[in-house]
Each structure stands twice: as C-alpha cells, then as structure tokens.
Design a protein around this nucleic acid. Structure first.
Lengths: 179, 179
DNA sequence: GACGACATGTAATGGGTTACATGATTCC
DNA sequence: GGAATCATGTAACCCATTACATGTCGTC
C-alpha cells in the first residue's frame, strides 16, 4: 500500500466528515483544527487530484444546478481502507516544535533583557487569545447530541487549552525571572 | 538590512557562543537546543557560505597544524549588528505545531479506540523520556557559576519540562476517557 | 584493521507557503 | 456598484531532510 504524508491523509479523513470539497477542507481546518493542523490550497488541490488518480477518491462535478462551481469528492472503498490502515499505523515521529521565542531567549544576553520581556509578553497575549478562542469553540461544540466525533474533537481542544495555559504559566515565570 | 530566516540567525547566534564550526553548531543544537530547535548539515553549510558572502561572517581555515580539516567562523561587526537587530525584531508568527496524534484522534471513530489508546500511550512514553532527558540536562547545566546564558538556557529547559508534563497529563486524561 | 567520532560538503527530493489568476454569488 | 464569501487551480519559491561522497583521527 502506497504511503502518503499526513497532510494527504488529513484530506482523505476530512472527506469522511461533512466536508465534500477542497474549499470545505480548508475552512474546516482553519476553524476547527487550527490548534493542531494547518493547510493551504497549494496542498489541497494537487493532493485531491493525486488521490483520484490513485483511486482513493471519486470526483463528482454534479453541480449543473448549483450556481457556483463546486467539485465534490467521496472516498472509494480503497480510500476507506487506506484511511483505516493509516490510522492503525504506529506514529514514528513525534516532532518538536521549533520555537522562535526560546531561540531568541537562548541567544540573548543582559543587554536584550527589556526586549525579551516584551517578546514574551506578546507570546503570552497570543496564548491568551488562543485560550479564549478554544473556549468559544468548545462552547459551540457542546451543543446537541454527544457523538464520538464530538467527544474526540473536544479532546483535541482540551489539549490546546492545556498547552496554552502551560505556556502562559511559563511566560509569567520567565518574565518574573528576567525582571 | 537583508532579512534571513530564523535558522540562519540561529547559526549566526550560536557562533557567538563557544561554537566555532558547522559541526559544532550541529552538535550544540542536537544536544542542548533539541527541545526547541532542529537543524541539518544541508542547512548549515550553505548558510555559512551565504553569511560569509554577505559579510556577516569571517571564515578562518587556520588549521594547517590541526589534524582534522576544520573551518572556523566568527562574526564580523556587521554580523553582530544583524544578530542584535534580529533579536529586537518583534516575532510575527507564533506557529502551532502540527500534531499527528490529535489528527488521528480527530479522524478516528469507535472502531479505532483500542489503537488510539495505544498511540496515546506511546505518545505519553515519548514525553516521559523527554522529561527525563531534560532533567539530566538541567542537572549538568546547574554546575559551575551561574551566568546569564546559563540562566536563559535553563529557562528554555523549564519550558520543555512544563510542556512534557502537560502532555503526559493530557494523555492520562485522554486514555481514561477512551477506556 | 575496523569502528566510532570528527569534519565538510552537495544533490535530490519532499513538503509547504505565497502570490497570482479567475470567476460567480450574496448582501449591503 | 462594491465588498465579502464561495470556489478552483497553478507556478514560483522557500525551507528542510535524506542520502551520498569524502577523508582524518583515536582506540580497541
């Protein structure tokens, strides 16, 4: 079985949710998965094409009635299998995030202390905003019936919240230490 | 002033510490900065060349006496200025890490629960190992006189530890919820 | 003499963003 | 009529990893 990168499986996987088009996928990731994934059209459309060529997706251009050009995709049986297989594969790389704040802190010296405090304050405020966004998202997801999908989505949000809170905590300590 | 990417400034910055060569930089990042940065020779050597061309680094090949080929670099005045300037620039993108564990969790359903628990257990154990590594590193850095550099290095380590602990906590909760 | 650490470097490839091009629809 | 949103797609870059090529030195 051909191996794709995680981005390609993300596209495949999101087409099993209520997403149907490339545009839907982009919107979905930007709004609901932004705390742990990113994507651009430059990846989406070529990947969709590839997945159709490889027989994992079927392309439907039904929209004669529709006003706007809209290309819908759905998984073939092979596509469903490939997705399942990927889900069951052990993850090999748990990568570290590169962190420019820490890089600068590491490379800074006493003369840069004031600037570093500002950088960390900014970092803190960004995390704070994220935390607020997550809380709002969480709220909106808590509506209606509790499905497995929803429960798991909420678990990813909980991750985002925990990390944001931890970073805020670190920022406070770091600022205190630098002062 | 020409703008480089963060990786290039990392190289420039590390040459102000006791690192002198491309090999030193690689070793330093792999051992002491691995919790927030990564690099490969494929970036280091071309970047060093570029920085020399741009007059931010001076290249010294003094090692006629030395046994092993060894090219040392040091910052020119322009190099020192460029580094300072970069340190004082506001950081524009605080990127999110892509997280394959969360991606899979998000795309999984009831049928994949057992596998997901395994994936998360693995994730947990990786974080645990990292935490132990950080503790060892911290210990080794606590020796000798406390310089500003050391204090800041320890702050980056504290970040790594906090994040690792938070992820472990999340893993425990996630496993409990999936069970 | 084989292996591991030291040391430099390049080429191929993979992965991703950004900018651009295009056009319809909706709502003010 | 103009802006925002919906919608698809490509080309040029940028950034990074991997694999390879090459050679020395120390030590078991």
């Amino acid at each position: 079985m051909k191996r794709y990168n995680a981005t390609t499986y993300a596209i495949l996987g999101l087409l099993t949710t209520h997403c149907r088009t490339g545009y839907d996928i982009k919107r979905m990731i930007d709004t609901s998965l932004s705390h742990f994934w990113r994507i651009s059209y430059g990846q989406i459309y070529p990947s969709l094409k590839l997945l159709v060529e490889d027989g994992l997706l079927e392309r439907h251009s039904p929209t004669i009635d529709h006003k706007v050009e809209r290309v819908e995709y759905r998984l073939t049986f092979a596509g469903q299998q490939a997705l399942k297989e990927w889900l069951h594969e052990p993850i090999e790389k748990f990568s570290y995030e590169k962190n420019e704040v820490l890089l600068r802190l590491f490379l800074s010296d006493d003369g840069d202390t004031a600037t570093m405090i500002q950088q960390i304050e900014k970092y803190r405020s960004v995390q704070y905003e994220r935390l607020e966004t997550y809380k709002l998202l969480e709220h909106s997801w808590h509506m209606g019936t509790v499905t497995t999908q929803k429960k798991r989505a909420l678990m990813t949000l909980s991750f985002g919240k925990k990390i944001a809170r931890t970073i805020i905590e670190w920022c406070d300590e770091a600022i205190a230490q630098l002062t």
